[in-house]
Every structure is written in C-alpha cells, then in structure tokens.
C-alpha cells in the first residue's frame, strides 16, 4: 500500500455527483502538507449526467503528467459501482477501491434499455484483486440530511482506511478552507460518518 507522500487517486462518477470538489479537497490537503499535487478534471458536456473521471496525483517529488497510465492508481474512489468498474484499468493490483453502493442508472429510453445491475458491478469490483470497501452512501446522506455530501463521505471512508495518505484531521482543515462556511459542519459530519462506515 502506497501511503502518505505518494498517492495516485482516481475519482470516478457521474456528472453532477460532486467529483470535482472531492479532488479539490485532496489537492488542498496535499498543499497544506507541503506536498506536490496535480489533478485533472472532466469539465464540459459530460457534466450533464455523463461519465466523469478526476485524476489526482500527490507526491513528494515533482509530478510530470496530471493523467495516469493504466495500473498507476493506488486508490479508486467510485461514486457509483459501474463507474468504478469503468476505471478499473487505472488501479494497480493490490490497490484500494472505496465505492458507493448505490448504482446510478443511465437514462432509460425504453423499458428494457436500463437493465443495469449494481450488484454485478460490485461483484466484479470484489473479484479484481484490490482491497474493496463498499460504502452505503445513501444511508450516510440520509443521516446527514443532504445528498451533496456523498463526495466528502467517500473521502472520509478512504481516509479512515488509511488509503488517502491524509488523516481525518488534515481533511477537516481542508474542508474548512474550501467549503462555504454554512456547509462546513455538514461536511465534517459526513467525513466522520464515512470514516466510521469504512471501519465498521
């Protein structure tokens, strides 16, 4: 497990789920820790419900490319099981997957077109040779009372597992620095709820 100073993270989800803030928070934590960081976001048409992927690279040494090659990621954060599967090629063997359990169905255009099974995706994640943590994002969001905290809950889970290279305290600081004041408390609660659910 690559820890601390050198961590490559793929954040995969569906446009609108809040992946951009997640990578921003990791970048903020890295900067606060005096580390180098490069990220790359999907911004544009795909933000309207398409597949979005962020690459986040944290290192003590200079980083060349913001994008990773296959097999380079230590951690894959899936906001949705199918999108986690789509990005599996980035994850190195023995890496960690933290994924939300609930699938987001693609738009149905006919009654049969949306045959998409979340459990089949989770099964595939389970059998891919990585350490897997499945998070009940819906339950955490319900507990906190907002759908917008899925991103922070997943980060909390990854941090709780020690897969992010940053402590929960470091993330608390990053959240205070990056999130509008009235949303800080909500996000801090989501962070810890995520961490608890990963260790449960």
């Amino acid at each position: 497990m690559s820890m601390g100073a050198n961590t490559n993270i793929i954040i995969a989800g569906v446009g609108g789920q809040g992946t951009v803030l997640a990578s921003k928070l990791v970048a903020r934590a890295a900067m606060d820790a005096g580390l180098r960081v490069r990220t790359s976001e999907t911004i544009g048409m795909a933000q309207r419900g398409g597949s979005v992927v962020s690459h986040v690279r944290v290192s003590e040494a200079p980083i060349a490319s913001p994008l990773m090659a296959p097999g380079m990621a230590d951690l894959l954060i899936g906001f949705e099981p199918g999108e986690a599967v789509r990005s599996l090629a980035f994850l190195r063997p023995g890496g960690t997957i933290v994924t939300n359990a609930q699938p987001v169905a693609p738009v149905a255009v006919s009654p049969t077109s949306a045959a998409y099974s979340g459990p089949a995706m989770l099964e595939r994640l389970d059998g891919c040779g990585a350490r897997l943590a499945v998070i009940d994002g819906a339950a955490i969001c319900a507990e906190i009372g907002s759908l917008k905290v899925l991103n922070v809950a997943l980060l909390g889970a990854a941090a709780g597992l020690g897969a992010l290279g940053f402590s929960l305290d470091q993330f608390e600081t990053a959240i205070r620095e990056s999130v509008r004041e009235r949303f800080v408390d909500m996000n801090l609660r989501a962070l810890h709820a995520g961490a608890r659910s990963a260790s449960a």
């Binding site: 569906v14 446009g15 609108g16 048409m45 795909a46 933000q47 309207r48 419900g49 398409g50 597949s51 090659a69 296959p70 097999g71 380079m72 894959l76 199918g82 999108e83 599967v85 789509r86 599996l88 090629a89 980035f90 994850l91 190195r92 063997p93 890496g95 997957i97 169905a105 693609p106 738009v107 949306a114 998409y116 099974s117 089949a120 995706m121 099964e123 595939r124 389970d126 059998g127 891919c128 040779g129 990585a130």
Partner: peptide, 24 residues
C-alpha cells in the same frame, strides 16, 4: 509489457452501462 492493473478478473463480462451526457 503492459502494466498490471485491475481490469481483468472475476466477472469480467459484466460491463458498466453506456452513459452518454443527457438533458438534466
């Protein structure tokens, strides 16, 4: 040698859905 990754393995036939951008 292609770098080893996690894309192969059990349940490989289960593919994620096609997900084009859509009107909200």
């Amino acid at each position: 040698e292609p770098a080893a990754d996690c894309s192969a393995g059990a349940g490989e036939s289960a593919e994620p859905p096609v997900r084009p951008p859509v009107l909200c």
